[in-house]
Write a protein that binds this DNA or RNA. Structure first.
Lengths: 226, 226
DNA sequence: ACTGGAATATGAGAATACTGCTGGTAGAAG
DNA sequence: CTTCTACCAGCAGTATTCTCATATTCCAGT
């Protein structure tokens, strides 16, 4: 879990950093707005903690700049200003939460957990399932109806993505970007082929298909409707 | 934007409801935990505002129950308790934000915007509806009166466009540009044909037509006037 | 009302796009 | 060297999209 901490007061910064590292978060720091924005643009973070009062470029501007880039990183705004109006400005600038100083460290942690829950930290022994299909992220194993299923890395990644979006239709573009991580359209049919692999391993021989095709739209992982 | 408000004090409830409706949010109410949970399960909301102190089942329990169902609706916890520990419990129970009473209404609005922005911009669980017709963008499914309706990609796109502009007349040119994405007039009648397809699927066999023709102008999706 | 021309609705089938699948290649892993 | 994985090419079957020809409806101007 990588966190970007943008805070100019060295004392506060190192306090937060230490505390977060104790919880085994990976923390990178920036000491002013400009630099913070640059780091946010160049790297991928799971969360950004942003002080409002910063040299060069204030937190609100940084926040807006990040959002303009369509980035969806959760942003936690941090500041000494406690009045309602400031909070509102912060939240409207695109922040996801707001924490007034002084705060208790455990509250920071709690809000952090709330913000990152969604982005799906798959570090720990997370388990995903649908119907009688189970995927264990920890041991990278998949079973259906108790039977273990052997998947290659790609197959696993694809199934993982489908599982994370179960019930939602995912287009080929979605899959390309999230599983193959190339935004370029190679004009190939790899995805079809892999869907076919998965079908053979997951659906074939089991009652109730899980992988469904929506022609012209994409694929869904869902239980057959009753 | 549909909001579920779970709050037992009538005064507070109606205060919030009124305020939200002024901002043209659609608000539904529940007066205790049990009922709130039931409503949350049976309907789709864009956001849930949950008081912690409730009769029958407190807000924390409701929150956990909702999360257990894998539902990702943003939840805003509301309470008189202001101490840090209570906030933490709330956030860890699966809430996305926490607002201590008394609060200023505009702060509630700001937090609301922050919470709904996220679910809105991932294009995901968006839902559109008119009368008893519902469209779920996530699973690309359409139902009328609860009955599932199968649409092809093109039909879905057309209905989506009509739904986004429900109540407004859209011309053939509008449709060509927005659904077919060609600004060129091919001189064909594809649109008529597809309107006809849609009619067969969503109007035929149901009481009350939704698709209306305005000769010389275009089409509208609207409920029959009483 | 009546009517003729324009606009829209509808049915059938051709044209097209999409998907499932097989077989094969290159390269990595063992 | 053999096996396994990732990927590509291409065909066949099928669902979808579109065209066209033919009703039907609409509406101004009698």
């Amino acid at each position: 879990m990588r966190i970007l901490l943008v805070e100019d007061e060295p004392k506060v910064a190192s306090f937060i950093k230490k505390g977060l590292e104790e919880q085994s978060y990976e923390v990178e720091q920036a000491y002013d707005g400009n630099f913070g924005l640059k780091m946010a643009m160049q790297n991928e973070y799971d969360l950004i903690i942003l002080d409002i009062i910063l040299p060069h470029m204030n937190g609100l501007e940084v926040c807006q700049a990040i959002r303009k880039k369509k980035s969806q990183v959760p942003i936690l705004m941090l500041t000494a200003l406690g009045s309602t109006d400031d909070k509102i400005t912060g939240l409207d600038a695109g922040a996801d939460d707001y924490l007034p100083k002084p705060f208790e460290f455990k509250e920071l942690l709690a809000r952090l957990r709330a913000l990152t829950r969604r982005s799906g930290d798959n570090g720990g022994g997370e388990k995903l399932s649908i119907a009688d299909l189970e995927m264990d992220m920890g041991s990278k194993t998949v079973t259906r109806g108790g039977k273990p299923i052997n998947l290659t890395a790609r197959e696993f990644a694809l199934l993982h993505y489908l599982l994370r979006n179960r019930g939602r239709v995912v287009s080929r573009v979605d899959i390309t970007e999230n599983v193959w991580e190339t935004s370029f359209d190679t004009g190939s049919n790899v995805i079809d082929v892999y869907i076919n692999f998965l079908r053979k391993k997951i659906d074939k021989g089991f009652p109730g298909k899980l992988i469904h095709t929506l022609v012209g739209m994409g694929y869904v992982l869902k239980e057959d409707d009753a």
